[in-house]
Design a protein around this nucleic acid. Structure first.
Lengths: 162, 162
DNA sequence: ATAGTAATGTTATAATATAACAAATAAAGA
DNA sequence: TCTTTATTTGTTATATTATAACATTACTAT
């Protein structure tokens, strides 16, 4: 390792502020849609965004109950379902974990670049990838609905760190 | 529905023969590598190929024990691990299930087109998709290792069936 | 033959996820 | 406002997926 620890605040100094802005955006989005971002759901979204890497449902649960709560799994899963339905979070299938959506409100087909070292996920919306998938699909007469694109590897920082 | 039921033999009349050929290929491949395709592992591979759609680990277990076996989960998971390691099967992350590899022996980055209706999985190896991902990754300084590409939607047959 | 390695058997349990129903709370109409 | 209805949350139990740990068996190579 060179100068900074992986996962250190140095790599994401303004998380607090960013989380606040994300939550406000979520509030607005839900208000517009007549969806209720209740304190519970809001807290789950906050917990997910507070972490630099995807969080499992039971990790979320632990964090909720760390503050003295007595929540059970269904409570968390229901909140996660709500957030998924409204595109505020994504589920990373290959990790059984959840991550905040970088561009909520846009129905989009995203790719996730997941660093196997520091765990950080970068969300992209490459037209090129989308088109390549569509081309492949069309050739086979396949109708694309829900692409899961999760590219595991090493991010710039962790790769450079060698 | 028009003429044939989904999942009917009509759509895959020669599965028996195909499975046989796949198993022979697997035998050869393992022999070349000095890996042991034991009866148990061979049987798991066979069970997976016998099904038209991906099978969960416990589905495999059930089929093994249907014949009077008394196998426990670790037995199946170990066989699955072996088959994964040698590229004879793939794990479909979005379904927690396993499917036979269409081109065993080739270290390859594959895409899976999964029909949400009949469950059938088509494996492709699109250079175009691969390059699009590499391009995206390179732009971000990301080093691709293990892409998970699972495109859910509807296959030609099921889409036509409407 | 036998020592070493690999594979399988066995029991228990961890980790992830959902079903089902009860209670509380918010929203919408009288 | 009151009250009815729908939504959300609480709670208990359980389903589903996956692995740890250690014993036993069966191969492999001397």
């Amino acid at each position: 390792m060179t100068s900074k620890d992986k996962n250190s605040p140095g790599r994401d100094h303004d998380r607090g502020a960013r989380v606040e802005s994300v939550l406000e955006q979520a509030e607005t989005l839900c208000r517009e849609r007549g969806a209720r971002l209740t304190p519970l759901r809001r807290r789950v979204l906050e917990i997910i965004w507070e972490n630099h890497a995807p969080l499992g449902a039971y990790d979320v649960l632990q964090r909720m109950n760390a503050e003295g709560g007595r929540n059970a799994p269904p409570t968390v899963y229901r909140a996660l379902d709500f957030l998924l339905k409204h595109g505020l979070i994504h589920r990373i299938e290959s990790q059984k974990a959840f991550v905040g959506c970088a561009t909520p409100g846009n129905a989009h087909k995203a790719q996730f670049f997941i660093c196997r070292d520091c765990g950080t996920v970068a969300e992209t919306h490459s037209v090129e990838i989308g088109e390549a998938i569509e081309a492949s699909a069309t050739r086979a007469g396949f109708l694309v609905e829900t692409p899961v694109m999760e590219i595991s590897g090493r991010c710039k920082e962790c790769h450079d760190d060698e």
